[in-house]
Design a protein around this nucleic acid. Structure first.
Lengths: 166, 166
DNA sequence: TTATTTTGTTTGTCTTACCTAACATCGGCA
DNA sequence: TGCCGATGTTAGGTAAGACAAACAAAATAA
């Protein structure tokens, strides 16, 4: 692994997609990568050389495409970010599934590992803390429609929370 | 305002910075833009022509640089995203100030208006919901260090929450 | 008002990442 | 086994956005 660890968003996308294809079919194929990225096959070849030269994939012309250990490590991390961010957008922020996925796809390049780790902690906390949890998320949804916290509802909500915890 | 509304991240950054400079000094100067973006003055000139041609800034060679109404509208929206995202990273996720700012700077291009609106709602909900609030965020911080919810602490925490609400 | 420094612009080049179109190779089937 | 469609590669081109260095204008100082 080299010292300079800054990869372009494009490269991160390639690695993530190659990992996904590899998981599904053992190896990735140029054509499928092109399809997933909505680019032409010709463009893929260029990037494969680039990735290969960076030591991130195993690549021979006309041969199988697989991630090297270094490449896989990075790909897994990107995929993890994607999963975490999408979960937050979809399950907490109530963003519609497809859009949550597309947005996560962009956000994953903007957040570093440590920041995503804190997001993981936060989601975990919401799921485990008795003051939060699934019913609390439901309250958030209703808060969004009314856009303010109804005092009377709050009292009942807290009581339910206490009840539920016992 | 044109139909095609897709602006590059770079353009969004320029607009945001120009707005900020304009707020501070009435007009933006080429040199200051270059400084803020960490690029050379020569690069700025090219983009100014581009922005001007897109109707986003008022620009004459050697003249004052100001945002047009269209440009300002976009700049304000980007700045708003930045503020909201940074608030979330800093105040909720506990990311250190400088890093929260830098990360927000990248994330603001990945999240659209509607998604940021939901994030605003969520932060608002956390601040207003009696089950959440500042003390709950404190609990999150302690959750992060222990990395699990201590049952006994939970009971006391809920009691404090009820107490506090009365 | 002239001389000097600062600021802004121009020009030509580079890199990244894409495209199209022509060409090469592979793999299955007649 | 040899041909054909699918897949992969090459070559040349484009666009965005940056750089350096030379040049032009403006602002400041003398």
């Amino acid at each position: 692994m080299h010292i300079e660890n800054e990869l372009s968003e494009s490269i991160e996308d390639y690695l993530e997609i190659i990992l996904d294809l590899q998981n599904a079919h053992k190896v990735a194929r140029s054509k499928d990568i092109a399809e997933r990225m909505n680019i032409t096959r010709g463009s893929v070849t260029g990037m494969l050389k680039n990735l290969s030269q960076k030591g991130l994939i195993n690549y021979e012309p006309y041969g199988y495409i697989t991630l090297t250990p270094d490449g896989e490590k990075i790909a897994r991390e990107i995929m993890r970010r994607h999963t975490v961010i999408k979960d937050f957008l979809f399950r907490i922020l109530q963003i519609e599934d497809g859009k949550a996925d597309a947005t996560a796809c962009r956000m994953e390049h903007a957040m570093d590992k440590a920041t995503v780790n804190m997001l993981v902690n936060f989601i975990d906390f919401i799921d485990k803390c008795p003051r939060a949890g699934a019913d609390w998320i439901q309250e958030f949804i209703s808060f969004c429609s009314t856009n303010n916290a109804d005092e009377k509802k709050c009292m009942r909500c807290i009581e339910r929370c206490v009840e539920q915890y016992k």
